[in-house]
Simulated assay, not measured.
Amino acid sequence: MATRDLPARVRDRLTAVRRAVLRRRRLLAVLCTVGAVAAGLRATAPPAAPTEQVLVAVRDLPAGAVLDGDDLHTVEVEPDRTPDGVLTDAEDAAGAILAAPLRAGEPVTDVRLVGPDLVDSAPGTIALPVRVSDAAQVGLLEVGDEIDLLATDPESRTTTTVASGVLVLAVPAPDQEAPDAIPGRLVVVGIPVATVADVTGAAVTSFLTYAWTSR
């Protein structure tokens, strides 16, 4: 009996499926149309624009900050929006010292780090770290200041100008681990090659201070 009823049950099931399809034919037609349109759009859509990875600051960072992995992250940008000298590898920036403040989301470039690339912003000069005798004086400086470097001889008590119109390139944070025998504080300046010997010699024999350049 069950065997004789099997064809009838199959016919009934097929009839039910056909009726369900007919009842929903409009919905199925719409779905098929949407699928076809989506496939066509994917086929004709232009390829994704190329991007490059660059390092940007996670948060605002002050001048003199020593960079580590928590300070930076990688973002994708269009090639024509990538600044020159931008860093792309966090390992290249790890341990570097910021020469100037960096805003959150701002790319990290070579001229923002303490090093020889700083002089790119001051053609005709070289970057030279000098130790100003009064650390508090250095705290008044900002990147971009123009100063005259003054040397005071402790024996003759005379002061001379050893370099004029010096550009402040970086103001590193104080080294808390520096021995007490080394007073003052370092500042990185851009000076002409011809004045390097005078400045470095004065830094050893005299007290170095500065005066802002008159404009």
Rank of each mutant, 00 (worst) to 15 (best):
A99H: 03
I126Y: 01
D134I: 02
D110C: 14
T109V: 13
V111P: 02
D117G: 08
D148F: 04
L87R: 00
S133Q: 13
L87F: 14
T88Q: 10
P154D: 05
P129A: 09
S121W: 02
S121M: 12
A127C: 11
L128Y: 00
A99E: 00
L118E: 02
P154Y: 08
D145Q: 04
I97P: 02
L113H: 04
A99Q: 01
A90S: 14
L150M: 12
A96C: 10
D120P: 02
V119D: 04
L113G: 03
I147D: 04
D120Q: 13
T109Q: 02
V108F: 03
L98Q: 01
A122M: 06
D134R: 13
D92Q: 13
L140C: 07
A136F: 11
V86M: 10
I126T: 14
G115V: 05
A96Q: 12
G115H: 03
D92W: 01
L128C: 05
D89I: 08
E146L: 14
I147Y: 00
A136K: 08
V119K: 01
A151N: 05
A136I: 11
P101H: 14
L102Y: 00
G105A: 09
E91W: 14
L98T: 00
A99M: 04
G139Y: 11
L149T: 03
S121V: 13
D117A: 15
A104Y: 11
A127K: 05
T125A: 09
D120A: 15
D145G: 04
A100I: 07
T152W: 00
E106D: 12
G124V: 09
S133I: 03
L141Y: 08
I97D: 12
V114Y: 04
G139L: 10
I126P: 00
T88F: 06
A104W: 08
A127Y: 00
R103N: 11
G105P: 02
A135C: 07
V108C: 00
A151K: 00
A136T: 13
D110S: 14
T152F: 00
P129W: 05
E142H: 13
G144K: 02
Q137W: 10
P123W: 09
V114P: 00
E91M: 10
A127V: 10
A94S: 15
V132M: 06
D110N: 13
A151I: 06
R103Q: 12
S121N: 15
E142V: 01
I126K: 09
V111N: 05
D89T: 13
D117F: 11
L141S: 06
G144Q: 01
L98P: 05
G144W: 09
G105Q: 02
L150S: 02
E142S: 15
G144I: 03
T125H: 07
